[in-house]
Design a protein around this nucleic acid. Structure first.
Length: 426
RNA sequence: GGAGAUGUCGCAUAGUUGGUCUAGUGCGCCACAUUGGAAAUGUGGUAUACGGGCAACCGUAUCAUGGGUUCGAAUCCCAUCAUCUCCGCCA
């Protein structure tokens, strides 16, 4: 959410954000509600002050009855005003949670991903001297998965990895975690089960009604819990209501969790191979920092993901996502896409996002500034570290050999017991 | 899952026959004084949010959370949550 004062003082900026991000403009409703809410607060507080004064006089008064009567009467007036205040404030609160984050000035403006800009391209897609196999053929011939079996047992959009590919998946995960630890991240194993409030805090959803997320989140039947779609949800709320010291910042967390998604809007898409499931494993980078250093941290996070993809020896490109494509809570977003030979296209492996103070307002995560002693909201950022099994797809497709074996990227070989390749006819 | 206990202003605590509690004390922290410097000591200060005000400042709320009783609640009632101890179950 945004700061009410900011909206009050910069309505045009906020209206513009609603426009370029494709969200309904509720700014005028907010402004008029805000005026009434403040009016009511002033009135009720003045009356309460009067009532408190009377209450203090009563114990020592000789004639208590008239004071009690007066106090009682003021109490009734306050109750009426409060009823209206509660209603108006709830409405205002809901609308405030429908205002999107202001996008960065350098973000491309556009309605959807067609307005995204390619920032840079690293590496060149390999030219094969044989006909490369798509991921599912490699998976089949090497016995690295059992799609029909798993679909039968667990349903659609689930997967299992078998044998050496499962080992490689674990090696990649370990590699990324170790890399992030070496860059100053604290590794956190996050629970996949959480409360809807934490999902709300992450700021992906609009409004203050938590029930709307039922369409997108797996609720655990008969409980008040749900399955988290990303470790970001847990990491973001890890300092809820804290006042951190400036010296603690930036806080860097590398969170691992299995992620659960309904993929309700993706029916029929990516049904073959290891691209899209109801569950997957992800190492997430997450940072709490001073707002002034947010841009610097964004580059840091983005670079970490680029390094990981580079270490996997994959051609990739970096995208600047447009205002319409970046989502409700984001200031800016850069997707990192790797080359998928079977699709003859670059596809997303991770997404680096600056959230500004949007999530921090929802979690009430603040820090005390050394110089001024002022308490301010922190800025938060997140990026993928690695998402599996999707990241395995470009790895096996780009590094495949004619015999169906797959070369292991050099940096991963130590974690694979020194092996240089897996699969094929040994 | 069963039984019991607890939850106070950074930490530790006082406060439970409702009203000098606008929450006391100790520690910590900050400032000043004292000192050649320090320790010790002394004095003062020490939260967050919101509303009002150019400002100094004033007001309101917060004693786990949410309700309730009352003119008035840290204190009484109800619900919820969390923590601890024991039992049960279990990777």
């Amino acid at each position: 959410m945004l700061d009410m004062k900011f909206i009050r003082e910069n309505p045009e900026i906020v209206k513009n954000a609603c426009r370029v991000k494709n969200f309904p403009d509720v700014v005028d409703d907010i402004l008029s509600l805000d005026v009434r809410v403040r009016e009511l607060k002033t009135i009720t507080q003045t009356k309460t002050a009067e009532k408190n004064k009377l209450s203090r006089e009563i114990p020592t008064a000789t004639d208590k009855a008239p004071l009690i009567a007066k106090s009682k009467q003021i109490g009734e007036e306050i109750a009426n005003d409060l009823a209206e205040l509660d209603e108006k404030e709830a409405k205002l609160n809901d609308l405030l949670h429908r205002v999107p984050q202001i996008p960065s000035a350098d973000a491309p403006v556009g309605a959807d991903d067609s307005a995204n800009i390619e920032v840079r391209r690293v590496g060149t897609p390999r030219t094969f001297d044989f006909t490369p196999r798509p991921q599912w053929e490699l998976l089949d011939m090497n016995g690295w998965w059992m799609p029909e079996k798993i679909a039968g047992v667990c349903g659609t959009r689930t997967y299992c990895l078998c044998g050496e590919l499962a080992e490689l998946s674990l090696a990649i995960q370990t590699y990324v975690i170790q890399k992030l630890i070496s860059k100053g991240f604290k590794y956190i194993e996050c629970p996949p089960v959480t409360k809807p409030q934490a999902v709300f805090n992450a700021g992906h959803f609009m409004g203050s009604d938590l029930s709307i997320m039922n369409d997108d989140v797996f609720m655990l039947s008969g409980t008040d819990r749900c399955l988290a779609a990303t470790a970001e949800i847990i990491l973001n709320s890890l300092h809820a209501d804290d006042i951190l010291t400036e010296n603690e910042l930036p806080i860097k967390y590398a969170g691992f969790s299995t992620c659960f998604r309904k993929e309700a809007g993706a029916a029929g898409r990516d049904t073959r191979g290891l691209v899209r499931f109801h569950h997957f494993d992800k190492v997430e980078q997450y940072i709490f920092c001073r707002p002034e250093e947010s841009d610097e941290m964004h580059e840091f996070l983005l670079n970490n993901l680029c390094e990981v993809v580079g270490d996997l020896e994959l051609p990739y490109r970096v995208i600047a996502n447009s205002t319409g494509d970046m989502g409700f809570n984001k200031v800016k977003q850069n997707d990192v896409e790797a080359w998928f030979p079977s699709e003859n296209a670059y596809r997303e492996l991770g997404s680096c996002s600056s959230i500004g103070q949007f999530q921090a307002r929802r979690t009430n995560t603040r820090y005390r500034e050394n110089a001024t002693g002022e308490v301010k909201f922190v800025a938060t950022l997140n990026n993928t570290g690695i998402a599996l099994p999707r990241a395995l797809v470009p790895v096996i497709e780009n590094h495949q050999n004619a015999d169906g074996s797959v070369n292991i990227p050099k940096k991963l070989q130590p974690l694979m017991g020194g092996r240089t390749k897996i699969g094929g006819k040994h």
